[in-house]
Amino acid sequence: MKTIFRIPFILLVIGLSTISGYAQVFYPPYPPSPYRPHPYSRHNDDYTTYSNRPSNHPLLFSLNYNVSGLLGSSHDYIGKVSPRGWNASLLYPINNHWAVGLSGGYQDYYEKLPRQIYHQPGSDISAVQTHVIETIPILATGQYYFSSEKNFHPYVSLGVGINNINYQKWWGEYEESHNSWNFAVSPAVGLQIPFTKSQTVGLNVQAGYAYSPYNYNDVKNVSNWFGQIGLFAQLK
């Protein structure tokens, strides 16, 4: 009895797999065709036109050199501006105005203080202190472009995520360190200037502010301003 039910089932499986072998399924992006608009295009332009639009390409990559200075109590800890940093982002354009993705970077703040005597009850230490803060932010980033039609694209962005803060206080050659992951938020304004007509590569400049709650020794919260310059490229 059971065999009778099995036979049509086996036939069905064989039939389906045979049919599916002939069936052609297209996943976006569709193969280029001059006869129909690209599915990502929101206009009825032909392929050549929309291919010049930055927002119609998936993944916008940007790599930047970053200069940053600490603010608040972290500025009291390290007053020197850090020219040692970089930032990168990988964004997916949802439409002509919005792009979302990930951004991350690294910054190394450093200051060597002249010899001083540090007093504690019953204890005095004379030392050359070196202060170091290293930050590695990893942020979910949303970017809003005011215009994608012209030769430059001003934008605002907001990143929310985590920031690895590596605090170091060197007493001469003795290191006291503290490492932790912290919440991070970073608003910024920027400008993209394409080099080519196709707008696939260009210059990126950005300036902004970042804040992370933090509390260790004399550093309460790590906040900083930053300025960055680099390149953006659309990855096809």
Partner: peptide, 21 residues
């Protein structure tokens, strides 16, 4: 990017003078 504090200390800079009383 990283600046190593150890590379920027003279021998004199490494000296720690600690007094307790």
């Amino acid at each position: 990017c990283q600046k190593d504090p150890m590379n920027n200390l003279s021998i004199d800079d490494t000296h720690l003078y600690i007094t307790n009383y």
